[in-house]
Design a binder for these strands. Structure first.
Length: 427
RNA sequence: GUGGCUGUAGCUCAAUCGGUUAGAGCGCUGGACUGUGGCUCCAGAGGUUGCGGGUUCAAUUCCCGUCAGCCACCCCA
């Protein structure tokens, strides 16, 4: 063995690249249907683009180094800062709301695990300059429609939707104080994975009383818009705080996507900059990591790009999605498809095969032929292995009649076809 | 970065208590089959047992280190 790719990096063999291309094509198609425009930025950025926002400790999570000009640089770990810069620079000229998407390759220096590598491609869809909850619904719908475009339904994937404003209002309304909120958020975020006792202990350490601790667990257990609304009705300002979430979920229901949506306040998302509705897509078997995550980050553009615009977006990586599709998607239909495989019966048939192959290729037909003389059975074997739907057999007898034999490789039937009529097979 | 588990052919796995030349299926190449694939049969190629060291007459097997993968943290994408 001559070594392998760096840990967390991938070689794409043809089957794998075909899957990746299929994913990209589907992403682009759904983005197009939603009226999003594609953009891109540099894969290498100034280190400060990331440290300014997230602090120095993020450097150990980055591929960061000094270039030959002494500049501190990093391979991009996320697209949002680049987007913020680009939008910030042209903010005056761009008609709002901005609807942009990108498929950057992102890098992170972290120990790899299943579904989590050091490099991946991530669809980013963002809407900038629109505060309406309909924008939130629009993005969640796009994420869901990508799943549908892959043939996945509510039995396969769901969107868990929450709103930090709702969570915040509920917690404050149940007696928690502002300084206690981060700890409460963290506990709620992990409430599914970590034992309740450990979480209660964590809350106690933060100085949160028993009654408030019970409230935290109560809130974390809420499921569905109605349950959340009922809880909100009991606290001050609750109805107002719940309005955006209610509208966004209502819009999704109006689109007919209600079966995909699950209101669940345990979706907090790690990033501190989220300010409103947040959501994740996950497989219903819960055997994989989140397929997609995002939300509203109204303050971030101001902090990064210097323009005060409301914004929201999501990221969807190719790794977890690829695993999900391999697990339950239909068979790989994405491989390069040959239209025909040409077969020369004898050495004298080689030149006519070359001529015919070239004529067909000029017409846009995908053809292959054996690159060395071989028995017909060998050539047919190769034709079948290549997945060609038909073989075109050129032999002395056929040539004398100005014909070829067209063999259907699936049905096993064949017919003689005049060479002049051959191109009609492919239109 | 921390901890646990696992590393044998391209893939999935086997190899008795530490014992002689590390095997099988699938895949790959060739042949049986000189104008017709899928089936069957035969043969072949492919291994520094992840790598390095130690113990031993002898290591795929036991020990240590290291690298890689998986899992849990951390962190989130």
């Amino acid at each position: 063995m001559q070594g392998q790719a760096l840990p967390g990096f991938r070689d794409f063999y043809p089957d794998e690249l075909a899957l990746k291309n299929h994913i990209f094509a589907t992403w682009r198609d759904v983005a197009r249907r939603y009226g999003f425009q594609e953009y891109d930025g540099p894969p290498l950025e100034p280190l400060e683009l990331y440290t300014d926002k997230s602090g120095e400790e993020i450097v150990q999570q980055l591929y960061a180094f000094e270039d030959k000009g002494g500049r501190k640089v990093a391979l991009r770990p996320e697209m949002t800062p680049t987007l913020a810069r680009m939008v910030g620079a042209h903010a005056q000229a761009l008609k709002k709301p901005i609807r942009w998407f990108s498929i950057p390759q992102l890098f992170r220096y972290e120990r790899q695990q299943r579904g989590r590598l050091r490099e991946h491609f991530q669809l980013n869809m963002d809407i900038i300059g629109e505060a309406s909850p309909l924008a939130d619904a629009e993005l969640i719908a796009a994420a869901i429609d990508i799943m549908r475009a892959f043939g996945l339904g509510p039995a396969d994937v769901r969107a868990r939707v929450s709103d930090r404003r709702v969570l915040r209002t509920l917690l404050l309304g149940r007696g928690l104080t502002e300084p206690q909120l981060p700890a409460a958020f963290e506990v709620i975020d992990k409430s599914e994975r970590v034992p309740r006792d450990a979480m209660a202990a964590k809350l106690r350490e933060t100085g949160i009383g028993k009654r408030e601790t019970d409230a935290v667990f109560e809130i974390a257990a809420l499921r569905g818009l109605d349950a959340v609304a009922a809880a909100l009705a009991k606290v001050k300002g609750g109805e107002e705080a719940g309005e955006p979430l209610r509208q966004a979920v209502g819009a999704l229901e109006a689109m007919g996507l209600g079966d995909f949506v699950l209101v669940d306040l345990t979706i907090v998302r790690g990033l501190a900059y989220y300010t409103g509705i947040v959501f994740e897509l996950f497989d219903t078997g819960k055997s994989l990591r989140a397929i997609c995550g995002g939300g509203r980050y109204d303050g971030l553009l101001n902090a990064l790009g210097g323009v005060d615009l409301p914004a929201l977006g999501f990221g969807m990586g190719d790794v977890v999605l690829g695993e999900l599709l391999k697990e339950r998607g239909p068979a790989d239909q994405a491989s390069t498809k040959l239209d025909a495989f040409l077969i020369a019966v004898s050495g004298e048939d080689m030149a006519p095969v070359l001529k015919l192959a070239h004529q067909l290729r000029d017409l846009g037909v995908a053809v292959e032929y054996g690159l060395r003389p071989a028995a017909i059975r060998k050539q047919l074997e190769l034709a079948a292995a290549r997945g060609a739907p038909r073989a075109i057999i050129v032999g002395p007898d056929e040539r004398a009649a100005g014909e070829v034999v067209v063999r259907d490789l699936k049905a096993g039937t064949e017919a003689r076809v005049p060479i002049a009529k051959l191109s009609g097979l492919f239109h």
